[in-house]
Design a binder for these strands. Structure first.
Lengths: 118, 118
DNA sequence: CAGAATCCAATGTGATACTG
DNA sequence: CAGTATCACATTGGATTCTG
């Protein structure tokens, strides 16, 4: 999705903003990255810390994060199968951004209260 | 987890991340905010700096940004009609975030975006 | 355990035409 | 100039079932 719809090779600053939105945006990616910032998690561990995400969506979002190069998928040859997900080096450079997004969200929720339906 | 996590908050940190994603996410909101950071722009001025956005989408995204409280819509009583959009005070608190998103996107495009094929 | 496959509903987005 | 209205298509998301 990201690389396959690359635009011009010239980088306008807004293209950079768009790129970041595509990597961390979507309904679940920010949350997944937030949890992976703490360290490697297995598939069902992520499901447990993100109640509400379906198996299908977790798979899809993890695949996109992998494809963006920010998440690494590691298969342990065990029985039963165990798969660990962790941030790549590039993914770790996202931590300050995720952190800032969290802070802003808290500030927003605190000043606008619960009444904001968005 | 993230260093900035505030344990006394009654909001879950992931809800805060989600909230921010909803405010700045989507296909166009980040770009719109990026341009409004420079100052007030009229409707068609935004269209000009964001080639590719349709009139319909610009209207919809601006309405959502207004509704989130980060953009202010100001109608000048003139002929022909003139409407200016600008960041609210809350919206201006997003500027460091947008700026960081831009920087990360540039870093991503520079180190990863160009040569990668799927 | 960690998924893949399928179906379908909901939402997002674009093109086009029209308006005060 | 700054929108609305309408239709069509694309993308996203959920529920369910099945598998190595």
């Amino acid at each position: 999705m990201l690389q396959s719809e690359r635009k011009e090779s010239r980088h306008w600053p807004e293209a950079a903003v768009e790129t970041t939105v595509q990597v961390v945006g979507g309904k679940w990616k920010g949350i997944i990255l937030y949890h992976l910032a703490a360290g490697e998690l297995r598939f069902n561990q992520i499901r447990r810390v993100i109640p509400g995400i379906t198996q299908r969506m977790l798979t899809l979002q993890l695949r996109e994060l992998e494809r963006s190069g920010v998440v690494h998928r590691r298969v342990y040859s065990e029985m039963p199968t165990r798969v660990g997900y962790s941030l790549t080096e590039l993914g770790r450079t996202l931590i300050p951004l995720i952190s800032m997004m969290q802070e802003w969200g808290e500030h927003y929720l605190a000043s606008f209260g619960e009444g904001v339906s968005d």
